[in-house]
Design a protein around this nucleic acid. Structure first.
Length: 274
DNA sequence: AAAAGTGTTCTCCT
DNA sequence: GAGGAGAACACTTT
């Protein structure tokens, strides 16, 4: 899926394309992806207007006032807007029809989900999932981050990926953050120095913010809701760079190993455990 | 043709 | 309870 920067760019595209539009009809060829039930979603949202499109971590929130549709793109979910009467494609799963256009949700791997919630229960939804703060200075408290890391024996990479310390990092940006912080992905969290913790905190904010501004990374199939690619891939230093010389030390090649089941890229010279 | 892929969640084991 | 490994979800690409 898109990580936070890609989801944010999709959100910005949707805001331009479908905000304030009234839904006339919703159809689906894969209704199972609506975890709260497709028929209820159809019944409640037809006739309603999309009042706003928000984001929390990697989740997109379609605000209908009383109702909120929570959409997670997982690995391959995509949105695009088509004219009425367009020819649907193989992996198109949901069609939201307006008077002058159709919002299409497509997802090759069918991992993405939709959930329709009472808007008053949205906060509780994220609380129950223990979703961490947004990666911004105002929200992401370094003292609390540090405290949690000191108390944990988890390896730093999978801990950063589980969304509870901070929301929005995925497999690409977590490798970039750890490289920029000079921290090995398998470092046990409680062993991190104060300096390393400070760097991880700041680089998380910096990398995700830069990636948002650059329109995300189009390294596999990502495009935003307007079909436009991002350019953050040009600034990636380790992801997908295995075998290339580390651009910082120029003394070692970027290695790729498995950490908690995920492909992980790092410089063995710059990022040592202890 | 096996393996890996921008994610999350669950089970089973230590 | 904590943490890790592996699998599941479904499909494409290398």
């Amino acid at each position: 899926m898109p990580e936070l920067p890609e989801v944010e760019n999709v959100r910005q595209g949707l805001e331009k394309l479908v905000k304030n539009k009234k839904i006339l009809n919703i159809k689906s060829s894969y209704p199972r992806m609506v975890l709260t039930g497709f028929e209820e979603l159809k019944k409640e949202l037809e006739g309603r207007e999309i009042k706003d499109i928000k984001r929390r971590g990697k989740y997109l929130l379609f605000d209908f006032g009383q109702w909120t549709l929570i959409s997670h793109l997982r690995m391959e979910g995509k949105y695009r807007v088509e004219p009425l009467g367009f020819e649907s494609q193989k992996h198109d799963h949901i069609f939201v029809e307006f008077s002058d256009a159709v919002l299409v949700y497509a997802d090759v791997r069918k991992f993405g989900t939709w959930e329709l919630l009472d808007s008053e229960k949205v906060e509780q939804y994220f609380t129950s999932k223990k979703i961490g703060p947004e990666p911004r200075n105002e929200d992401f408290d370094e003292a609390l981050f540090s405290k949690k890391l000191h108390q944990s024996q988890k390896k730093i990479k999978p801990y950063l990926l589980d969304q509870t310390l901070v929301a929005g990092l995925g497999n690409i940006y977590v490798d970039e953050v750890l490289w920029r912080s000079q921290v090995h992905p398998e470092t046990v969290s409680s062993e991190l120095s104060a300096k390393q913790i400070h760097l991880i905190h700041d680089k998380t904010i910096e990398v995700l913010q830069t990636a948002v501004e650059r329109g995300g990374s189009s390294i596999r199939t990502y495009k935003n809701a307007m079909g436009k690619e991002g350019s953050m891939q040009e600034l990636l230093m380790v992801y997908g760079k295995q075998g290339e010389i580390c651009p910082r030390c120029r003394k070692a090649e970027i290695e790729k190993i498995k950490v908690a089941g995920r492909g992980s890229h790092f410089c063995p010279y710059c990022q040592k455990i202890k």
